[in-house]
Design a protein around this nucleic acid. Structure first.
Length: 317
DNA sequence: AAGCTCATCAACCGCAGCCGT
DNA sequence: GACGGCTGCGGTTGATGAGCT
């Protein structure tokens, strides 16, 4: 039998709304209020689907919408809320007056995830140790592109061939979703540590040491492009103590089982507060790790270090 | 200057949940 | 409880303009 279509599509107009249609819809909703979207087009004299009318009203015609670019404050708020809620755009939008879920979703997909991605992959600037997301957002340059077509191709072609990498859990388990509850809501605020302009102060981006066949689970590489940044952010990679973790719980267990942790933690590099792993196989000598500090006493700043290669100590300040 | 690539935003689609019958 | 309609949400697509070569 199948589900009935939301509306009769034959004869209905699609695509961009005209000024005249906007006026008709605005006047009708102002006179009759929101709701009854199904019958609205007929009553208002619009050749549109009810869903289309609703979307147009909510995302564009509503009077309380805020116009203009996303501010730095809103930018930070979105990152925080996304960390807490994930892709629950309507929930995020409810915390940002005048902004719609669609707007935030577009902003995230096109802007924020790109900036964070760029931060982690800016391999051409060897000496770079800092990032300013606010500055990045003002740039129009095309650095480290993650175009949709590339992402699409990547997602389509993605095959993890090398399951020996410590990053790769044997189940390729998706990153756990943080339960959305009151506590999560409360975590969005002072004292929490998230990837934002303020709390990322220093970094060393990974170089392009992963081949296409070595794509880690949460960090997917397509050539020199890091993909799945959303997945990374949703993976609880940054906990509320400011410690950066790139493993989900299961992966950590696997990792601990696979490597000599004691040796790693007590070797000459003295990785205090450090987690990481070493990988040696077939003359491939690779290290990847991170170091996180919670510096909430000094303005809620956080240092994040990522390194690769045989001598991460040179990156420590 | 032209063609190509990419960023952005508006809109569409399918699905799930809610609610009334 | 089952069913169907309506609504809202999140993922995705398409149009368009800007930037780059």
């Amino acid at each position: 039998m199948g589900k009935a279509p939301c509306c009769e599509k034959i004869g209905l107009k699609r695509g961009r709304w005209t000024k005249e249609e906007d006026e008709i819809l605005s006047k009708y909703v102002q006179a009759n209020g929101e709701g009854s979207w199904k019958s609205l087009p007929k009553n208002a004299g619009l050749l549109r689907c009810g869903k289309s009318c609703r979307l147009r009203w909510i995302n564009y015609l509503r009077g309380d919408l805020k116009r203009g670019n996303i501010s730095v404050e809103e930018d930070e708020m979105i990152v925080k809320l996304h960390k807490a809620f994930g892709n629950r755009w309507s929930l995020i939008a409810s915390h940002l007056p005048g902004r719609t879920d669609n707007e935030i979703k577009n902003y995230w997909n096109s802007s924020l995830s790109r900036q964070i991605y760029r931060f982690f992959t800016n391999k051409n600037e060897e000496t770079q140790t800092s990032i300013n997301i606010a500055n990045l957002s003002n740039k129009k340059q095309r650095v480290g592109r993650v175009s949709r077509c590339v992402a699409k191709k990547y997602n389509k072609d993605r095959v993890f061939k090398n399951n020996k990498l410590p990053f790769l859990s044997t189940t390729n388990k998706p990153a756990p979703q943080k339960p959305v509850d009151k506590q999560a809501d409360e975590n969005v605020g002072v004292g929490s540590s998230f990837v934002t302009e303020n709390n990322i102060k220093e970094s060393k981006a990974c170089d392009n040491v992963f081949s296409d066949e070595m794509k880690p689970d949460l960090f997917g590489f397509q050539g020199n492009e890091l993909m799945d940044v959303d997945n990374f952010l949703e993976s609880e990679a940054l906990d509320t103590n400011g410690v950066l973790s790139i493993h989900d719980e299961y992966q950590i267990e696997q990792w601990l089982a696979d490597i000599d942790v004691e040796n790693l933690m007590n070797n000459e590099r003295n990785f205090d507060e450090t987690m990481g792993f070493r990988y040696d196989e077939n003359e491939l000598n690779m290290e990847f790790g991170f170091k996180g500090y919670n510096m909430s006493d000094e303005g809620n700043d956080m240092l994040v270090w990522l390194w690769e290669g045989s001598n991460p100590t040179q990156l420590q300040g």
